[in-house]
Each structure stands twice: as C-alpha cells, then as structure tokens.
Amino acid sequence: MVLAQTGYPLLDLFWTMLVFFGFVVWFWLLFVIFGDIFRRDDIGGWGKAGWTLVIIVLPILGSLVYLIVEGRRMGERRQADAAAVRKAYEHDVRRIAAANGDSGGPTAQISEAKRLLDQGAITPEEYESLKSKALGRSVGEPA
C-alpha cells in the first residue's frame, strides 16, 4: 500500500478529508449568505455593506452571527422566491396553453380547414395539405 509507505497515517488522511469537506461547506455557505444579503430588499446599501464587511473581516464568526440573526427570515425569503418563480411559471404555462387552445392549436386549424372544405372554398388536396401542416407532417407523409 502506497499510503503506508509514505508515512501518512490513516487518521491524518481522515482528518485532512474532514477539514477539506468543512472548507467546501463553509465556502458554499458564504455563497448562500452573500446571495441572501444582496437579494434582500428590506435593508439598504449601508446595511448590505456592513454585513459584507463583517463576514469578510470575521468570516466564521460573521457567518455564524448572520445565520443566528437572519436564519429564519433567510429561509422564508428563499421559500417566497421559489413560490414566486413557480407562480410565474404556472401563469406562463396557462397563458401559452390558452393561446394554443383558442385559435392556434392543431385541432382548431384542422376544424377550420374542414369547414372550408365543406363550404367548397378549398379542394380536398388543399385540405390534406392544411391538415398535414397542422399536424407537423410533410404533405403525403403517412399518419
């Protein structure tokens, strides 16, 4: 085993992995905290600058203080943001579905073409062409 030959004990390896993992988690936490600070609209620029300065000057203590002071509201803001994004998405989906269902959908296009065919305004070949176009197929392609 190469590790045993280098003189690096197994517990030191575990300790190194634990420290590295802790560093990654702390670094991720800084991204979350800075993201929350700069997305907030309940504090002004000086408040944001103050929190940023505290976290930069005293990184671990500043992060812990921010989590203690703003932890609950931080979670509430994230939930509100997620709910707003979901509501906007659902609104867009309903708007697009309604627009396609009223006049632009394949069913409406085919029924309009059938009505024109029954009135004699178009030929059967033109009807088949319009139907294929509405269904997204090329003319003459089998169903």
Score class of each variant (00 low, 15 high):
2 V>P: 13
2 V>M: 10
3 L>P: 10
4 A>H: 08
8 Y>V: 15
9 P>A: 14
13 L>M: 10
17 M>Q: 06
18 L>E: 13
18 L>I: 14
19 V>F: 14
19 V>W: 10
20 F>P: 00
24 V>I: 15
25 V>R: 03
26 W>H: 14
27 F>D: 14
27 F>P: 00
31 F>L: 12
34 F>I: 00
37 I>V: 11
38 F>Q: 08
40 R>P: 01
44 G>M: 06
49 A>M: 12
51 W>R: 00
56 I>A: 06
60 I>M: 14
60 I>K: 05
62 G>D: 06
65 V>T: 01
66 Y>C: 05
66 Y>V: 01
68 I>C: 11
68 I>T: 15
71 G>Q: 12
72 R>W: 12
72 R>P: 06
75 G>P: 00
75 G>T: 08
76 E>T: 04
76 E>G: 09
76 E>I: 02
77 R>Q: 04
80 A>K: 10
82 A>W: 03
86 R>I: 01
86 R>Y: 03
93 V>P: 05
94 R>D: 04
94 R>F: 07
94 R>W: 10
97 A>E: 09
98 A>I: 07
103 S>Y: 08
103 S>L: 09
104 G>F: 07
106 P>Q: 12
107 T>P: 05
111 S>I: 11
112 E>D: 10
114 K>W: 01
114 K>M: 06
114 K>Y: 03
120 G>Q: 11
125 E>R: 01
126 E>R: 08
128 E>W: 08
131 K>N: 00
134 A>L: 10
142 P>D: 02
142 P>A: 11
142 P>Q: 08
